[in-house]
Design a protein around this nucleic acid. Structure first.
Length: 514
RNA sequence: GAUUCCGUAGCUCAGUCGGUAGAGCAUUACACUUUUAAUGUAAGGGUCCCGGGUUCGAGUCCCGGCGGAAUCACCA
């Protein structure tokens, strides 16, 4: 066991812990502390209904203390809000013994400690709704000092902890001291709840499908690989759940969806985390045109549930989420930019176009990929208002049904908002023979060295051979959608514990064991 | 993976030309019965991210590493 390096303040707090125990105060009591009110409730309703707040019980974490001789003020924060406490020595210590105030409160209670209090609500002479404390109880002693963030009269925040490394590694502290952070995550949950409600109201079934998959399918991405000892086989963490949900459509469910943690073994940046949340939904007897309406209504509902409006300011731009959204084919989107119909271009001409517009290409890229690159470079960033981009080239969409009247293209759309891809949807390919050939193409790509090409999945083909009804499917990146709807620039701000390099724990010098 | 920037007290940050390590908050002690960035007086607190190099002397300059951020690349 190595001795942990403790700061001066940490040593003092450990000494206080001992002193508390010597006073027969358990710093970590086991029993429940019953509360009957929240800080938010008090702040919102006390003025209207003062009689209801004569005998309250509330618990929270101490954020600041202002001792003033024989009385003191403190601020505690519960799950909802901050609220001020007023503590008078002679009220919490009515007898001769003033230990509880002079020693326990003034010496042994610190910022960061969690306490429960009983008392009544009143308004101070400066007009702040506060709790007049009659009794208090220590519920948990904090051994590490909490960073103190102060807000002045004008609302300006002083000494805010903004260091991203500190905030992400110690998110628990971030959530305590940066109230807006908590709000982002509450919104994230509301977004998911809103979507779930939308689906459930339509009678679709929420399901669970495997995270550990013998063949990682449904997307083009490098998987994480692991090993199952008992079966002695490799297993992959899912990169998508698409193929399993479609198997359920084959099985007779007519609407299934899943909020799925997916895993991709790729770079980490502002918009990518190795594990992220995808939502996928499949609805039988529908096509991608139906799915477009379904999607825009879903997005409009989510925004309205969240903000009671359909206009949102994101990165300084007003985005209007009122359905219907603009629709445009990928061919038209590019034509609008460079006045060339790329559906008429040969692969060689596409390559020249890419060069002309400084789009990096390599030999392995086919027609579909080149069109995709052109679109990304020329159009993507400018799609600020919600826009469906439709009818993608077939090469990059191996799970999508061929377009009903455009050879070489598929029935696929992506929804772009604020220059970001938010959703991706198809009329699903349900022709088992076509699907088999598409997989074969992917396998060829894999053999050429494309480590993101898809694997052949014979069981999925077998499922399709039993017959899958015509189906529309949709995938939504929940993290990206949350970023958009909470106006956050980085995915790390919408994931509680974003992936980071492990902290290096400096080991003190130890004797090498033989 | 490339480039740029950053790393100093528990937190937020200064640190000049290379010359004994600084402030505010927090902490400790004392005072103070309606304060609110409470106040007043005093005190303690440092692996200047790590390792080399240059130098009489390095928080500061150079090289390497570690960690983080941004941009780019990659990720349809």
């Amino acid at each position: 066991m190595s001795e942990r390096h403790l700061s001066e303040q940490e040593i003092i707090r450990r000494q206080k812990l001992q002193q508390l125990q010597e006073l027969n105060i358990n710093p970590y009591p086991p029993e429940s502390f019953e509360i009957n009110v929240t800080a938010k409730d008090i702040k919102e309703n006390y003025e209207r209904d003062k009689l209801n707040y004569k005998n309250i019980s509330i618990a929270g974490r101490i954020l600041s203390i202002r001792d003033m001789g024989k009385a003191a003020f403190a601020v505690i924060q519960d799950a909802t809000e901050k609220i001020q406490l007023y503590i008078k020595r002679d009220e919490i210590c009515p007898g001769e013994d003033k230990t509880l105030y002079d020693v326990v409160w003034k010496k042994l209670i610190d910022i960061g400690d969690i306490i429960g209090v009983n008392g009544y609500v009143f308004t101070t002479k400066t007009g702040e709704i506060s709790i007049h404390v009659l009794t208090f109880k220590l519920l948990a002693k904090a051994l590490k000092p909490l960073p103190v963030v102060k807000v002045d009269e004008s609302g300006k925040v002083h000494d805010a902890v903004t260091d991203p490394e500190f905030r992400y590694r110690q998110r628990y502290v971030d959530l305590i001291i940066n109230p807006h952070v908590k709000n982002i995550f509450i919104k994230r949950t509301k977004i998911i709840q809103s979507i779930r409600e939308y689906f459930n109201n339509k009678g679709y079934l929420e399901v669970e499908t495997p995270v550990l998959q013998p063949i990682p399918g449904g997307a083009a991405a490098r998987p994480f690989i692991t090993h199952h000892n008992a079966l002695d086989i490799p297993l992959y963490l899912r990169i998508a759940n698409e193929l399993y949900l479609k198997r359920l459509i084959v099985g007779g469910f007519e609407g299934v969806y899943e909020f799925a943690k997916n895993f991709r073994n790729e770079g980490i940046d502002r918009t990518h985390n190795p594990e992220f949340t995808g939502l996928e939904i499949y609805v039988a007897y529908k096509d991608y045109l139906w799915m477009m309406e379904f999607t825009e209504q879903m997005i409009e509902k989510v925004v309205t549930d969240l903000y009671d409006t359909t206009d949102l300011e994101v990165e300084g731009k007003i985005i209007n989420f009122k359905a219907p959204f603009k629709r445009m084919t990928i061919v038209d989107a590019i034509k609008e930019k460079i006045n060339i119909d790329i559906s008429l271009c040969s692969e060689h001409e596409l390559r020249e176009l890419c060069k002309k517009h400084h789009v990096e290409v390599d030999e392995t890229m086919g027609k579909g990929k080149l069109i995709d690159e052109l679109f990304s470079a020329l159009c993507e960033k400018e799609l600020i208002q919600p826009t469906f981009i439709m009818d993608y080239p077939i090469e990059t969409s191996p799970l999508t049904k061929k377009h009903r009247n455009k050879p070489g293209f598929v029935e696929r759309f992506e929804l772009y908002i604020n220059g970001q891809e938010i959703a991706n949807a198809y009329t699903e390919l349900n022709d088992p023979i076509d699907q088999y050939h598409r997989f074969e193409e992917q396998v060829k790509l894999k053999q050429k060295g494309d480590d993101e090409a898809m694997y052949m999945d014979y069981d999925f083909i077998r499922a399709l051979e039993y017959g899958m009804p015509p189906t529309a499917g949709l995938g939504v990146g929940i993290d990206r959608l949350t970023m958009l709807l909470t106006n956050q620039h980085s995915i790390q701000e919408v994931i509680f514990f974003p992936q980071m390099r492990p902290e290096k724990i400096s080991e003190p010098e130890t004797e090498t064991t033989s």
